[in-house]
């Protein structure tokens, strides 16, 4: 995954609360291979029959402002794939589903928490604005203002470096083995009993 620290793009508002991951990608598309591109599935049912849907009016948008509790619900990482494959680099909201936010960071998508989101969405209604995101300072400049967004420092570092957890963790393999062996020795009950009624 490529890291990034600055993004200049176009911001658009989707002023709805509780946009859950079932809406971000309906379940029926989830057997598709990632190679097919998941962007085509993004918010499919919500967009259908709505010619004014913000992402259809402004397909160049790469920054999405949305209502509270964005990405709640199912842990499906496919919801993030759909956003990323549709060219979205950052979602701004007052809050995110915990699992969604972790999935986003694991795919280079910034989940930026910003208390001012509702006011910004009101100001943006029906139009776009250019916006700049600086990960180093956790700031977003849009609509003539520069605002500080919330992002856990560990996630900021990860996004900037494009780090992959498996690579990082493999540096701790000895610690993990030691932990495992101790757990197996001292808490033997925590392993599944060996007998298996099917054997």
């Amino acid at each position: 995954m490529a890291g990034w620290s600055r993004h200049d793009g176009t911001a658009v508002a989707l002023p709805r609360d509780n946009i859950d991951t079932d809406q971000l990608i309906p379940a029926r598309f989830m057997s598709a291979s990632r190679a097919e591109g998941y962007g085509q599935f993004l918010l499919r049912d919500l967009r259908e029959g709505d010619p004014d849907f913000p992402l259809d009016r402004f397909p160049q948008a790469s920054i999405l402002l949305a209502g509270r509790n964005f990405g709640c619900g199912s842990s499906r990482e496919a919801a993030v794939y759909a956003l990323v494959d549709a060219g979205i680099r950052c979602v701004i909201a007052t809050g995110f589903g915990d699992i969604f936010a972790a999935n986003a960071v694991n795919n280079g998508l910034l989940p930026a928490r910003l208390a001012e989101t509702p006011a910004l969405m009101q100001a943006l209604a029906g139009r776009t604005t250019s916006a700049s995101i600086d990960l180093e300072t956790s700031q977003i400049a849009l609509n003539g203002a520069t605002l500080q967004f919330d992002l856990a420092p560990v996630w900021r570092t990860k996004l900037i470096n494009g780090w992959d957890d498996i690579d990082l963790t493999r540096a701790h393999l000895d610690d993990i083995r030691t932990f495992r062996d101790q757990r197996h020795k001292r808490h033997r009950w925590s392993w599944p009993a060996s007998q298996n009624p099917q054997d």
Partner: peptide
């Protein structure tokens, strides 16, 4: 707790997961 696909791959590969304590 539930995890996403990248974290599932991480658990498969290492039997561990990175988390910030809630």
């Amino acid at each position: 707790f539930g995890i996403g696909a990248t974290e599932v791959a991480h658990v498969l590969a290492t039997q561990t997961v990175w988390q910030t304590k809630p």
